[in-house]
Protein backbone atom coordinates (compact mmCIF):
# COMPACT_ATOMS: atom_id res chain seq x y z
CA UNK A 1 0.00 0.00 0.00
CA UNK A 2 1.28 3.41 -0.92
CA UNK A 3 0.40 6.72 0.70
CA UNK A 4 0.57 10.17 -0.85
CA UNK A 5 0.23 13.34 1.20
CA UNK A 6 -0.49 16.89 0.17
CA UNK A 7 -0.08 20.51 1.20
CA UNK A 8 1.03 21.07 4.78
CA UNK A 9 1.21 17.32 5.43
CA UNK A 10 4.44 17.40 3.44
CA UNK A 11 5.98 19.27 6.40
CA UNK A 12 5.34 16.12 8.46
CA UNK A 13 5.79 13.19 6.05
CA UNK A 14 7.50 12.29 2.80
CA UNK A 15 5.37 13.12 -0.22
CA UNK A 16 4.92 9.40 -0.99
CA UNK A 17 5.80 6.36 1.05
CA UNK A 18 4.99 2.67 1.43
CA UNK A 19 3.08 1.50 4.50
CA UNK A 20 3.06 -2.05 5.94
CA UNK A 21 0.49 -4.42 4.47
CA UNK A 22 -0.56 -5.49 7.98
CA UNK A 23 -2.53 -2.24 8.42
CA UNK A 24 -6.12 -3.36 8.13
CA UNK A 25 -8.15 -0.17 8.00
CA UNK A 26 -7.89 3.62 7.90
CA UNK A 27 -7.93 3.81 11.67
CA UNK A 28 -4.83 1.61 11.95
CA UNK A 29 -3.18 3.56 9.14
CA UNK A 30 -3.83 6.74 11.11
CA UNK A 31 -2.19 5.22 14.16
CA UNK A 32 0.77 4.16 12.05
CA UNK A 33 1.14 7.75 10.80
CA UNK A 34 1.05 9.07 14.37
CA UNK A 35 3.77 6.58 15.33
CA UNK A 36 5.86 7.90 12.44
CA UNK A 37 5.33 11.51 13.50
CA UNK A 38 3.38 12.29 16.70
CA UNK A 39 3.54 16.02 15.89
CA UNK A 40 1.11 15.43 13.00
CA UNK A 41 -1.79 14.60 15.32
CA UNK A 42 -3.62 17.90 15.07
CA UNK A 43 -3.10 18.21 11.32
CA UNK A 44 -4.25 14.64 10.72
CA UNK A 45 -7.39 15.14 12.76
CA UNK A 46 -8.73 17.55 10.12
CA UNK A 47 -7.77 15.34 7.16
CA UNK A 48 -9.84 12.96 5.11
CA UNK A 49 -8.66 9.79 3.42
CA UNK A 50 -9.22 8.78 -0.18
CA UNK A 51 -8.56 5.45 -1.83
CA UNK A 52 -8.35 5.33 -5.62
CA UNK A 53 -9.63 8.93 -5.68
CA UNK A 54 -12.77 8.28 -3.64
CA UNK A 55 -13.23 9.44 -0.06
CA UNK A 56 -13.46 6.57 2.41
CA UNK A 57 -14.41 6.47 6.08
CA UNK A 58 -12.35 5.20 8.99
CA UNK A 59 -13.79 1.69 8.79
CA UNK A 60 -12.66 1.19 5.22
CA UNK A 61 -10.78 -2.14 4.94
CA UNK A 62 -7.45 -1.55 3.23
CA UNK A 63 -6.44 -3.82 0.37
CA UNK A 64 -2.96 -4.82 -0.66
CA UNK A 65 -2.56 -2.52 -3.66
CA UNK A 66 -4.57 0.45 -2.43
CA UNK A 67 -3.27 3.92 -3.24
CA UNK A 68 -4.21 6.15 -0.35
CA UNK A 69 -4.31 9.95 -0.51
CA UNK A 70 -4.46 11.96 2.69
CA UNK A 71 -6.52 15.03 2.01
CA UNK A 72 -6.22 18.13 4.23
CA UNK A 73 -9.09 20.67 4.23
CA UNK A 74 -9.31 22.26 0.80
CA UNK A 75 -8.08 25.78 0.14
CA UNK A 76 -8.60 26.26 -3.56
CA UNK A 77 -9.79 29.46 -5.24
Amino acid sequence: MEVEVFALLKDYFDKKFIVPARLSDIESLKQHLLDLNPAAEQVLSSCRFAVEDEFVDHNYQLKENDYICIIPPSSGG
Binding site: F6, A7, L8, A50, I71, P72, S74, S75, G76, G77
Partner: peptide, 12 residues
Protein backbone atom coordinates in the same frame (compact mmCIF):
# COMPACT_ATOMS: atom_id res chain seq x y z
CA UNK B 1 -17.14 28.40 -6.89
CA UNK B 2 -18.13 27.86 -3.24
CA UNK B 3 -18.02 24.12 -3.64
CA UNK B 4 -14.76 24.16 -5.57
CA UNK B 5 -13.09 26.33 -2.95
CA UNK B 6 -14.29 24.27 -0.01
CA UNK B 7 -14.48 20.68 -1.17
CA UNK B 8 -12.18 19.95 -4.08
CA UNK B 9 -8.69 18.67 -3.16
CA UNK B 10 -6.76 21.77 -4.16
CA UNK B 11 -4.48 23.61 -1.76
CA UNK B 12 -3.04 27.08 -1.75
Amino acid sequence: IDRIKHEVPIWK
